[in-house]
């Protein structure tokens, strides 16, 4: 198994065609999800008549800024963890030096990068926050009550690229070649899974918030934050 995973052919495959494939599934899948949501929303009698740009933005802004909504203020611990988790999860892979070096090799351009030590710390933050999420699922009664196998699955899918990336960077556990391969695989798995699991809250967040913000603001003349 180890030999198979570290063989040059497999390595070439997962760092070449499979990356393209997973990005295509990620983008195509999300586009499909978005379009099917749009067509279903047209069938729903109240969605389009209610929607309002002003109240959509008001709602989204109050919920993507830490402590800007009542529930964020009532749950400061959860707010800090959630915002650290999501910020690090999105920023680290995009602005990582190693990733940008690969992009530069292929297309000769790169984004800004963050120093390696900071990226390392951010990776640990993601892993620790995920651990806290896991503990919540196991311990907090109201969360435990609504936890299914899929909840553990999507949490693992989100955090595996970070665990494998951390281990590969520090050359721990397995040989670097194997760990690197596993890291790429984990990242691809996550990308493929996003459109088809509840990880698609990454896309839906903006639209559910826009609808509820509009309903509360434009129709009921009240706040939803």
């Amino acid at each position: 198994m180890f030999e198979f995973l570290t063989s040059p052919a497999v390595y070439q495959f997962i760092r070449g065609p499979l990356v393209w494939l997973s990005f295509m599934i990620f983008i195509g899948g999300n586009l499909y999800k978005f379009l099917s949501m749009l067509s279903l929303a047209k069938k729903d009698k109240v969605v389009f008549p209610y929607i309002s740009l002003k109240y959509s933005l008001r709602s989204i802004l109050h919920w993507i800024i830490p402590f800007a909504s009542t529930n964020w203020r009532k749950r400061p611990g959860m707010t800090v963890i959630t915002f650290f988790f999501h910020t690090c999860l999105l920023v680290t892979p995009v602005f990582l030096i190693a990733h940008n070096a690969l992009i530069k090799e292929s297309w000769n351009f790169r984004l800004w990068t963050i120093p390696e030590t900071i990226a390392d710390v951010m990776t640990v933050v993601v892993i620790l926050c995920a651990l806290i999420f896991l503990m919540r699922r196991l311990v907090v009664p109201e969360v435990k009550f609504v936890t299914f196998g899929t909840d553990y699955l999507i949490l693992s899918l989100a955090v595996l690229p970070f665990i494998t990336g951390f281990l590969a960077y520090h050359q721990l556990l397995f040989a670097y070649e194997l760990m690197g391969t596993l890291h790429i695989l984990a990242g691809e798995l996550m990308l493929i899974a996003i459109p088809f699991t509840r990880l698609n809250h990454m896309v839906y967040f903006w639209f559910t918030r826009a609808y509820t913000g509009s309903e509360f603001g434009a129709v009921r003349h009240t706040r939803d934050y």
């Binding site: 047209k42 969605v47 839906y204």
Partner: peptide, 16 residues
């Protein structure tokens, strides 16, 4: 239609 499907598929079961 849209609301039911989107709400059910988005809920991340956080209990907040």
């Amino acid at each position: 239609a849209g609301r039911l499907r989107t709400f059910v598929e988005t809920c991340i079961h956080c209990g907040l």
